[in-house]
């Protein structure tokens, strides 16, 4: 028979037990995955602007200057990255694409080196974009794999470039002429930035060397 004092003891023991287990589990998570510092979008941009962002400015100069009046600067690049990431979340891209190369041969063969904790140490991973499912491929090394034009067509109608694709159309990333609007430029920039922190990975196109060079002070220059 359970009387009242033993009930209190039971509840206390249970709360202590569950609290202790959660604390230890959280501590393990902390020591295994957390870092002390993380980069802002501006700091990421200061590390170098991807070539494809500049290419957008060259290919669509009128539209680009309307959306990013400062031109292809680090500030504009940071703004595009932040907006692109928000669109990536809002359109549920992360529900069908992962950003995590697992430490197994199948993943590394297809996408290159396994994901490191340092890759998630930035503002754009708030919360983390690791994803939950792969209807489409992993995107953590998507940058410079395909051209801006390919992405532009792919967002308008994915089957126009991949006939068997089941990706939805995102025509609100385009203006009436089919050019990318601000959202389109931002999401393409975000796509092209993924993996740009690595030297190489499978199927990575060569980028012009001028875009990601480091200056003597140790930070990468923009264009």
């Amino acid at each position: 028979m359970m009387d009242k004092p033993s009930s209190k003891t039971l509840l206390f023991a249970g709360m202590v037990g569950s609290s202790l287990s959660l604390l230890v589990v959280a501590a393990v998570a902390h020591t295994s995955h957390l870092s002390r510092t993380e980069l802002t979008a501006e700091q990421l941009a200061a590390d170098g602007i991807v070539y494809e962002f500049v290419q957008l400015a060259e290919r669509f100069p009128v539209e680009f200057n309307r959306y990013f009046p400062a031109g292809a600067t680090t500030e504009s690049y940071a703004e595009a990255l932040r907006l692109g990431r928000d669109i990536y979340v809002a359109e549920a891209c992360w529900h069908c694409h992962t950003q995590q190369v697992r430490p197994i041969p199948a993943d590394e063969q297809r996408w290159g080196p396994r994901s490191q904790a340092s890759e998630y140490r930035n503002e754009l991973q708030h919360p983390i974009m690791r994803g939950t499912r792969r209807v489409g491929p992993d995107l953590s090394r998507e940058g410079a794999r395909r051209s801006n034009d390919w992405h532009l067509a792919h967002f308008y109608d994915a089957t126009s470039v991949v006939p068997t694709s089941v990706m939805p159309a995102y025509r609100w990333f385009h203006d009436a002429r089919g050019y990318p609007n601000k959202r389109g430029m931002a999401i393409i920039t975000y796509m092209q930035s993924l993996g740009s922190w690595l030297d190489c990975y499978p199927n990575c196109l060569d980028r012009p060397p001028s875009t990601m060079q480091r200056d003597p002070s140790g930070t990468r220059e923009g264009v």
Binding site: V25, A29, S32, L34, E38, R121, H126, P127, I128
Partner: peptide, 20 residues
């Protein structure tokens, strides 16, 4: 917490909290 505090550990925290 993952939105404002946990930074790059959000994946760990989010997945952990989901299970718990």
């Amino acid at each position: 917490v993952p939105q404002y505090v946990a930074g790059d550990g959000t994946g760990a925290i989010t997945k952990l909290v989901f299970y718990e």
